[in-house]
Design a protein around this nucleic acid. Sequence first.
DNA 1: GCAAGGTC
Length: 862
Amino acid sequence: MRTVLMVAEKPSLAQSIAKILSRGNMSSRKGLNGACSVHEYTGSFIGQSAHFKMTSVCGHVMTLDFIGKYNSWDKVDPAELFSKAPTEKKEANPKLSMVKFLQVEGRGCDCIVLWLDCDKEGENICFEVLDAVLPVMNKPRGTERTIYRAKFSSITDTDICNAMNHLGEPNRNEALSVDARQELDLRIGCAFTRFQTKYFQGKYGNLDSSLISFGPCQTPTLGFCVERHDKIQSFKPETYWVLQAKVNPEKESSLTLDWDRVRVFDREVAQMFLNITKMAKEAKVESVSKKEKVKQRPLALNTVEMLRVASAALGMGPQHAMQIAERLYTQGYISYPRTETTHYPENFDLKGCLRQQANNPYWAETVKALLSEGINRPRKGHDAGDHPPITPMRAATEAELGGDGWRLYEYITRHFIATVSTDCKYLQTTISFSIGPERFTCVGKVVTSPGFTEIMPWHSIPLEESLPHCEKGDLFPIGEIKLLEKQTSPPDYLTEAELITLMEKHGIGTDASIPVHINNICQRNYVTVETGRRLKPTNLGIVLVHGYYKIDAELVLPTIRSAVEKQLNLIALGKANFHQVLEHTLDIFKRKFHYFVDSIAGMDELMEVSFSPLAATGKPLSRCGKCHRFMKYIQAKPSRLHCSHCDDTYSLPQNGTIKLYKELRCPLDDFELVLWSSGSRGKSYPLCPYCYNHPPFRDMKKGMGCNECTHPTCQHSLSMLGIGQCVECENGVLVLDSTSGPKWKMACNKCNVVVHFFENAHKVRVSPETCELCEAALVDVDFNKAKSPLPGDETQHSGCVFCDPVFQDLVELKHAAMRHPMHRGGQGKRQGRGRGKGRRPGGRLNPKKPKDKMAALAAYFV
DNA sequence: GCAAGGTC
């Protein structure tokens, strides 16, 4: 019997497809990566009985990146990224070990059926799967076909079975068009990002953005926000006049009429109309019309509409809303939340979904009424062939979902109920009046059948005072007629919901990536989210966009993406050659890049207005070792030190605080040391600004502090403060934090392990002696008499932190369980003492690490 | 440290 491997794009689809094809008769197990499952059953395949293994990937298996050496921002000219720098495919998510998983499941299979999503990305993933799995599958006998592609447009029994009965082949051209897109995005995005980041960060001190990124989606997204900003800035309010008339159909009430001319912009003309109408004593009814009007129920819900409503009505940002939606989905409350489709397949169990909502206190009545009176078919929407619209799949209560989870679920459910409700119907009455020669109108609406607005009350037609009963020719006395002076007002900043609409309209991003792009421009400090979730561009965002406009507007126009996609489509259709399109497009952007670099002064002129040069920012902190003048500490992201005399910039570790370290100096270069700290519960270590950027010794890398410095005699170095091998990571050393008293600690100089010890000790020093058992440096501890926890009134002790029984209770590991033999197993048991006997399995010392500390130094020292 | 696209 042959074995058929089948692969879907995500675990949920593998499950639903297997369920359909096996008619529910399958056995399921988790795969080795914990994320994907394998569903197995027996059935028939092309006329023969076969064993099926249905599984999935999690989106793309591979991702594209430059080969290692081109990832250095310092050594590589960004211009090289357009052609010279080779790229390679890497596993997209190493934690999932997807390639290994596919190979384990694919080994020994005879055929493969690719059930990836039916779009270009899916086609590309087909080939990623094939690349992984073909080498381990059984070789075909003769000319036998082994690779099949299932084409489906919805996850319904008929569609899936139909796809299984009409298997095709994966489309290489479509996959290639995605390869081209990936390579273009990578080369163009990284080149521009690296260039402008380095250029502007090297000049300005208060940009407050650690990355000045550019991308074919994020930059136009920012462009929309700045475009609106410009409209607001250039807006000139205009005064206009409106004629307002009130008539009294009955004595107590009055009716306000709208002027048919709406407004005029000339004061004298307006005054003339007022004078004319004032001469009339009565308003005459010219016509009365009544119309049955319909407010349509909504289309079924897709992702972008959900995100729009989440932002505009629930105040939830798109990124956050997607996270909530994903949680609701994985917990089974709603269907798959990433879909473009607004149309339900014919056989979708709408009634079943509705029935589950029959007991919710908020909408039980509406649901029960719909179920007994019969539901309305949802409106015909767009079928993108991906997933059904977002639908509640399980009843839920406010208590079990809580907060935003419930608010989003409630909206999705109300929306769903609305799609199977009737339209809202109302009667619209329009009365047309004449006052002298001028025409006025009054409109009234009366709901005849609320339909879906019952479940979506925010869409209901507002109650108005009913219009008087009247007929053509009736005369009403005029109560008041006056001229209102008003001003046109500027538009407001773009709301997130409006931005999503613009992005969708211009094809910027996809349903899954739109939230990411919006999030990006917020995180890069290009826009801020203001009240009402309006996006206000920052100075940085404005200057960037204005700069692109000045140099090359195509870099920011939304058309840039679609122009490239047109080219890519030619590849997909087999009408153009992959290499030619890639080369041609890269050539265009390479020229654009060089022109941008040559013209950067134009953008720089704009920068100068908003930002201060490095030399003028920051506050003096520590002295430069070259000129012995104070360097300035620039706190804005990315924080760094700048010596304005030498015009040198020194980068610093991020995400922590920097202080001067007792005015101590590095013995190598005379720079004053600074102390970096990640907070009271974290780590801290001193560093020399110069060494941090220019490692002094072989085997020291950029970005190392004194706790990794191999200087043999400096009192802050690893050699003087290092105690022993890290208890968790391979290459780390636990280093005494000499600033940490009285809550003394040592911290690993590689990973996040922190060991607290000797609380309240007066002094803790690392001794030159080492432990006979484990080779760790001994530690001298000094306590005050009153506070000493040492036995027998002692105040001093020297011993090994790991092996000395006196120290045992004074050492406590944070972040993870201690794996050192001394502290392994039961509390206080001495059986682990000594390496000879109590060695943990596989727990030998790293053989690369020289045993003797001085030998280690000799090895490192240049 | 960089893009955009899948998905967890």
